[in-house]
Design a protein around this nucleic acid. Sequence first.
DNA 1: TTGCTAAACGGAGGAACCCTCCGTATATAA
DNA 2: TTATATACGGAGGGTTCCTCCGTTTAGCAA
Lengths: 191, 191
Amino acid sequence: MTAADTVRRKPRADSQRNRERLLEAAKAGFAETGPDVSLEEIARRAEVGIGTLYRHFPTRDALVEAVYRREVQALADGATRLLETLPPGEALHQWMRSFIDYVAAKKVIAPALGGMVGGPSQVFAASGVMIREAMTTLVERARAAGEIRADADPADLLHAVVGFAYAPTGPDWNASALRLVDILMDGLRVR
Amino acid sequence: MTAADTVRRKPRADSQRNRERLLEAAKAGFAETGPDVSLEEIARRAEVGIGTLYRHFPTRDALVEAVYRREVQALADGATRLLETLPPGEALHQWMRSFIDYVAAKKVIAPALGGMVGGPSQVFAASGVMIREAMTTLVERARAAGEIRADADPADLLHAVVGFAYAPTGPDWNASALRLVDILMDGLRVR
DNA sequence: TTGCTAAACGGAGGAACCCTCCGTATATAA
DNA sequence: TTATATACGGAGGGTTCCTCCGTTTAGCAA
């Protein structure tokens, strides 16, 4: 029997349970303490040894990625929904606004977004791809419909929206970001 | 002789020298290792005890602020210079572009910018004021000249530019940010 | 010059955190 | 029930943070 023949056992129940507890604890920890919660704190909350945490998520980024994968998915899905019910330009506009609202609601995601725009960090690769695809589709449709400038670049717009969301600004943060999206959209529209 | 009467000695020469060395070392450290250089590393580079570092700069942010105060000053000064030679709208546009270029040249400043937009962190208050004043002047002039929308808000624009600069995006970062400034400016112009 | 003293120095040390390694415990399959 | 692959948990070595305090030294006056 060679190594390739090894039969996989069913994953252990305790393993899955702990993984779940860790994700839960991490989410709570990020929300309460911010993106710099100590990993030991998370393990403590989950009532799990630190070793267990590291086995499930070998790196801090892996944990963040796991916590937010579902969230990012939801955000990306919103794009197709908007495209079905609105003219493409409006869909793009609304999606960018929803992006801001989303980040406003869960500010913790912001650092994670950092790795998403295509930077050297490949950690959030999966999430990054989802978001980029959503934005690309939106932009292409709007361009095809002649609603926005032909030279509008999805990557640029993503950069912009992430930037608005990422920059830790004042109490007026949310409203300000939305206004900026509006202005940006004005700049994008074909005159 | 009451406490108020105490005569201040001339500040000690070694103190001033060490302060200088620390700033030098910090600048180099930030540039090479990034914004997370260990403070002990900086002290080591400056050939100074860790205690000395903490006496001069009680917090990491205080050190960053000190390192970049001059840089921020230069950036702010650019605004008046531009206003003297260009129409206000163009001055605003160019200043925002110069902002991006500046941050591109010294990426380390970015985290420091975070605290500048008016967030809860009061650490970069001084620098923040300088930048905010520059932006406010530029926007007011451009508005008065009727070149940009009357509802353009300096704080929003600062938020935007900082966001563009702050978001850690890919290799195309610099060019992308400049394109975004251009689009934003298009959105700002009165039609 | 000399001596006094406020001011500055520097590093030991406790606390928190990161991450690895490995002995112990247990869920699954036979 | 037994065997063993798999998962658990935490001790421990290394790093960084920041404080505290005994030692050194630069400025000042006599």
